[in-house]
Amino acid sequence: MSAGMIIAYILIIIAGGILLYMAFRTGDRRYIYFAVAFYVVFPVLVHLPLPTSISPEARQLYDAVDGLPDSSTVMLTFDYYPSTLAETEPMSRAALHHLFKKDCRVLTMTTIPLGGPSIAERVTREVAEKYGKVYGKDFVNLGYKANYVAVLKGMGSSIETIYPTDNSGTPLSEIPMMKDIKNYEGIDFIIAVADNAIIDYWISIVNSQYGVPVGTGVTAVMAPRYFAYIGAGQMTGMLGGMKGAAEYELLVNEAGTATKGMTAQSLVHLFIIVSVAVGNVIHFMERRGRRRRIGV
């Protein structure tokens, strides 16, 4: 650890201590808000890298994708709103790096009308450019269609019926990559990245009824719910929140915004843990003081 990093950590501890003291003293929750803001902004300004380990769920997803034969077809979904981009976009990016490195054909789509299609377009094209991938031959963006249950079910019979054209209006029949992708039978694996309960439908409709393996990327708050699907074998791996995204970035050796965000997340978590611990100590001291006063 360099001298600069030691100074940075000392600064972090002092600032946190002062803000926490003020929060307890005044009872004003805005000091807590200020501390959180400080811990998020500080690592952006001062680079403080941290080592990340790999969870079994992220490893399972990586192994499943890595085990696919080269040139397999993988569907990558962008089922998230712009609000959760910080957690979800790095997952999509890392997955695209992995898929394009393996020369997989990538089919993207979204069930989110607000922002979904443009996020899919932007992220896929940016990553594809790095690998020299060509639209229509190596990747296709189907875009958005309303009524997700009907869309997920309908693609089981015919993708072209649900999406007669791609996101930019080109008929699917004119896109070379789509020649042999007619329904789920032409798709080897699905990576559903989502910030909402659409994951349940990818599992209950697409995995359970059509047998396509589904791996997922979900926000941190959603992750605990989906361990049950992994346990039941209905979900093939999962990336949970920004940590999951950082793990996948590490696995594909493409450090991105999630890896950078790990320091901020670590500091905020630690601040919460310390404030909870200090709060409890004060709570016990007050309770003991009260008991003494009333002679219990």
Partner: peptide
């Protein structure tokens, strides 16, 4: 939208600070 979602971090911190008592 992103700003509103980001506010969750602040609220989680203040809720934990206030409500997590043994």
């Amino acid at each position: 939208m992103s700003t509103m979602f980001a506010m969750l971090a602040f609220y989680i911190a203040s809720a934990a600070f206030r409500a997590f008592r043994a």
